[in-house]
């Protein structure tokens, strides 16, 4: 498939599934790793964000990070730093950038980009090991990212 055609298809799919006013993965603009503008315009829900951070089938952030606030989630990993106090260390815009694409903040980091839908090597159809059947969706939706950011903002050192 030519690149133009691929982009065209992706655009069609997004147009049908994306909410009005949502910033699509390819349109996100980063400044020093941060994203100033909300991806949706709808404030994030920290409780939903907490679920996304802990759930294996969603963000699965705890695969790599410890989060004391989610003490009931078992098996927290240690590939990345603990997220306790992330809301003190970073601004909302910086956290949005970190979740969307941490490589814009930490060059070459092992942390995956959660709001990105192209530029991958041999991307698959989720965890099936097979080639995708259509254009890729980002791992988290725009509102998921906002929810996760809202949760991270609650992580303050006492």
């Amino acid at each position: 498939m030519t690149k133009a055609l691929k982009l065209g298809l992706a655009g069609m799919l997004c147009a049908s599934t994306a909410m009005a006013g949502e910033i699509k993965p390819k349109d996100v603009s980063f400044a020093d790793g941060a994203i100033e503008q909300s991806l949706t315009g709808t404030p994030g829900d920290p409780e939903k964000g907490a679920t996304i951070v802990g759930e294996k089938s969603m963000g699965n952030c705890v695969a790599c990070h410890q989060v004391s606030a989610l003490a009931d989630v078992p098996f927290q990993g240690e590939v990345g730093p603990p997220l306790d106090g992330a809301g003190d260390r970073w601004t909302e815009a910086e956290l949005r950038g970190l979740v969307a694409n941490a490589k814009m903040t930490f060059e070459g980091t092992v942390m995956p980009a959660f709001y990105k839908d192209d530029g991958f090597i041999r991307p698959g159809d989720a965890y099936t090991g097979k080639a995708p059947s259509g254009p890729l969706e980002p791992i988290l939706s725009a509102q998921d990212v906002e929810d996760v950011v809202a949760f991270l903002m609650t992580l303050k050192e006492q």
Partner: peptide, 18 residues
């Protein structure tokens, strides 16, 4: 893949980690 992870990311840079 979509997670952009190499063998080295897990088994060279992070062996010993959970």
């Amino acid at each position: 893949g979509q997670l952009e992870l190499s063998c080295a990311n897990c088994h060279e840079e992070n062996y010993g980690n959970m």
